[in-house]
């Protein structure tokens, strides 16, 4: 006799990113999602409407805090106050996940610590690795938890890399115990732009690139997937990761591959520009759940 547990697939937690126009939708009725991700800096206020929103959201949904400004690869480390504000938000919302990016955002400009307001790429070498590892360890020590570090979409290739991106990130995980937030769309964007970044670069198969990249990551190092879509561009223009479209068919296929490789990893739908209705956003989450159900039901049957 087969028990119920052996036939019920374990599905990943599926969430959506929360943006301002959806605050009321998210709060008016509990949506069929497992968590909500917010950009941490949008809720650093000490009071007022946004403070109330995050309090209400956290009371209704598990939260993932996605920071965008620590600049974990910055040689000029983030100010103590910034980490303390993130800590206060962590204490207030008790998130299931906390993440930021494998980028630099802080640097000295005319002797002042200056912020780029963006996620800037780092070269993949020993010096960057040591710097990023220090910053990740500092954040983890203060937050008293493991954080996730997200791969970037990058529009320039900095000189001085001695590792591939995936080798670099794996080493970062080994040094710090952090896990990876793999943004599948970032992989696709980097693959699409590959020929514009490499000298005499040729176009590559984006899905194959993404799958190879994923295959180079150990199975236990992944803590979350991000899925998004971006605006199509003409052949020799840079594709920009603008999070303005539904997830592409290619990205869904790579997502299926990723689930097969890494198991039921929490998955988030991001949509930041050209925002759709809340219902459309939730439908994207349903698609992710549908794919995961197919992947893991099949695995259960195969067992």
């Amino acid at each position: 006799m087969i028990s119920l547990n052996t036939t019920t697939p374990q599905l990943p937690l599926i969430g959506v990113g929360l943006r301002h126009i959806h605050y009321n939708d998210a709060l008016s009725a509990r949506a069929n999602i497992d968590f909500i991700e917010v950009h941490a800096e949008n809720f650093f206020t000490e009071g007022g409407a946004t403070y109330q929103v995050i309090t209400d959201i956290a009371a209704n949904y598990p939260i993932s805090l996605h920071a965008t400004s620590l600049g974990l690869g910055s040689a000029v480390p983030a100010p103590e106050q910034q980490l303390n504000q993130l800590l206060a938000l962590v204490d207030r919302t008790d998130p299931i996940l906390v993440s930021d990016h494998a980028c630099f955002s802080w640097a000295e400009l005319s002797s002042a610590s200056t912020h780029a307001g963006d996620l800037l790429p780092v070269p993949f070498n020993e010096e960057s690795l040591a710097c990023m590892a220090n910053n990740v360890l500092r954040a983890q020590a203060l937050l008293k938890r493991t954080i996730l570090v997200e791969n970037l979409s990058a529009y320039i290739q900095l000189p001085g890399s001695t590792y591939s991106e995936s080798e670099f990130l794996v080493k970062l995980c080994e040094l710090t115990g952090c896990k990876l937030l793999i943004d599948i769309n970032n992989l696709m964007v980097n693959a699409t732009n590959h020929h514009l970044l490499e000298p005499n670069g040729e176009k590559i198969d984006t899905k194959e690139f993404a799958k190879q990249w994923l295959n180079s990551i150990p199975k236990n190092m992944v803590g979350e997937f991000h899925l998004a879509g971006c605006t199509a561009v003409p052949e020799n223009d840079f594709m920009i990761d603008d999070h303005s479209q539904p997830v592409s068919d290619d990205a869904w296929q790579v997502y299926k591959f990723a689930l097969e490789r890494f198991g039921p990893v929490p998955t988030l739908i991001e949509w930041d520009e050209n925002l759709p209705s809340w219902t459309t956003l939730l439908k994207e989450a349903d698609k992710a759940r549908h794919i995961a159900t197919k992947v893991f039901s099949r695995e259960v049957r195969e067992v």
């Binding site: 910055s74 040689a75 640097a107 780092v122 070269p123």
Partner: peptide, 9 residues
């Protein structure tokens, strides 16, 4: 790294 990031900025 510090110098190159400063130049970038």
């Amino acid at each position: 790294l510090k110098e190159s990031q400063s130049t970038f900025m």
